[in-house]
Write a protein that binds this DNA or RNA. Structure first.
Lengths: 252, 252
DNA sequence: TCGTTTTTGCTTATTTATGATTGTATTACG
DNA sequence: CGTAATACAATCATAAATAAGCAAAAACGA
């Protein structure tokens, strides 16, 4: 078996399982650990995978597929449900803004409208959309915030001011009646606010854990929002309060 | 049996088995190893297969897209060498622009100056730099060009005009004395030109295969360039011509 | 026919792929 | 928090595969 064939096979294995172990690969190919390590090193240089202690993971899985643990802890299934509802709001030919965030990332995956224009400040969302056909993708630019992999700051806001889109899909870290939408980072809050100003309709995607949470930086009060998309796990009483306040609630 | 017939037969074998060994082919055709190697070398140049140590594998099964990853593997070592030289030009505290491209991607990997600011229009470069410490990363924004994974267009140029950096590192698809720097896409050419205007020093990273090549869209003539970084594989005579023209050449 | 070009095989020095070994780094666990 | 277990990089030796140069054979054209 040639090196090139091993590479192919490793790529295939990564597609199936998202990760491979050095020890398994030595058995599969019947070669030494040195050889496998060299293979992985080579493949990492060629951007074919990401090495880890003990083996390697596929690049896409690293960025987009939440690991097993993450899925358990961070309400992944809620986010997928919310994203599917949000995706239905996007019609063929729409232009939309998608904010960075884990829930909005799911929205990007779920999008299936034809011929749409998407503006985003998230590198991960751009990478997801990159593989879809029939779509114009515009990135806002800006300073890269490393922990959210999003572009924020003045540059980002300047770009956003060039556009008026049909719909804006925002993520948030906290949402209450009194303080509205909040997030831990001021710069990010300002970017989100600019996004709201660039859209006709503004939707907030929020899993149940965000309700009642207040963070440092206020994005905007609820009056500017057209609807909050969440799941029916949120207590009915809380949702009613929001609706009485004039905010539309869409549950999945 | 004619050479062409051997070629055909090898292609057939590759379709069946996905890989062929030099040793098997010598038996099948009853010729020497030298002959088989020459055949494979020829066929690789004609993009009929991919050589490996010991034989060859078929292209189709390997990678369905000869786009980005494929480009990366061709002349990869050249690119790494060039990138290392370029990386040395970056000093602590510098602000630089890095253009999109496979060679400049290697530069991003090789960067090791402290406390620098990097402006780029490449998602892949941003992703590489994302893991490094001590670095501010600014993305230009713009429309996503799918085959180069870069941001181009008006938005990109507007962003770039906000900055004056110490050094600009550009990729190119072709470089000649007469036509200067050229690339196949007009929009991308304009973005590159804007980058040049935003920098004090402009360096072009070019592997040897780009010399003498002219593409559709002219980026800029050579007068605007401070130096071309390449390898010593380029014929001395050609490099001399460039130097006589007033362009500094840095080889690795 | 003769000189030229192409194709081929052989030889040798070089490169590549691999496994083993050793000391070091990272992770897991009590 | 410290220690054992595991994984790692770096280095070396070796065998296989390769590139490059040369010479012979075959094909070709005038």
């Amino acid at each position: 078996m040639f090196i090139e064939e091993r590479y192919q096979k490793i790529v295939e294995l990564l597609k199936e399982k998202n990760s491979v172990r050095v020890s398994d690969l030595t058995e599969i190919f019947d070669v030494s650990e040195s050889t496998i390590r060299r293979d992985l090193q080579d493949m990492e240089e060629k951007n074919m995978l990401k090495r880890t202690h003990g083996g390697a993971v596929s690049l896409s899985s690293r960025n987009f597929e939440p690991s097993f643990k993450e899925k358990e802890t961070s309400r992944h299934s809620d986010k997928v449900r919310i994203a599917k509802v949000a995706a239905k709001l996007v019609g063929d030919g729409d232009s939309i803004i998608i904010d960075s965030g884990t829930t909005t990332l799911e929205l990007a995956k779920a999008l299936n409208a034809k011929n749409i224009t998407v503006i985003t400040n998230s590198i991960d969302i751009a990478t997801i959309l990159w593989e879809k056909e029939d779509m114009e993708i515009i990135l806002t630019g800006g300073t890269l915030r490393k922990n959210t992999r999003s572009m924020v700051g003045q540059l980002s806001e300047n770009s956003l001011r060039n556009f008026k889109v049909d719909k804006v899909f925002l993520g948030t870290n906290g949402i209450t009646l009194k303080d509205g939408l909040t997030t831990p980072n001021l710069t990010e809050a300002i970017t989100k606010r600019t996004m709201m100003e660039s859209g006709d309709k503004v939707y907030v995607l929020s899993d149940p854990s965000k309700f009642g949470v207040v963070n440092f930086a206020v994005i905007e009060n609820l009056k500017q929002i057209d609807a909050i998309i969440t799941t029916d796990e949120v207590e009915k009483q809380i949702l009613d309060e929001f609706q009485n306040f004039g905010v539309r609630i869409i549950t999945s």
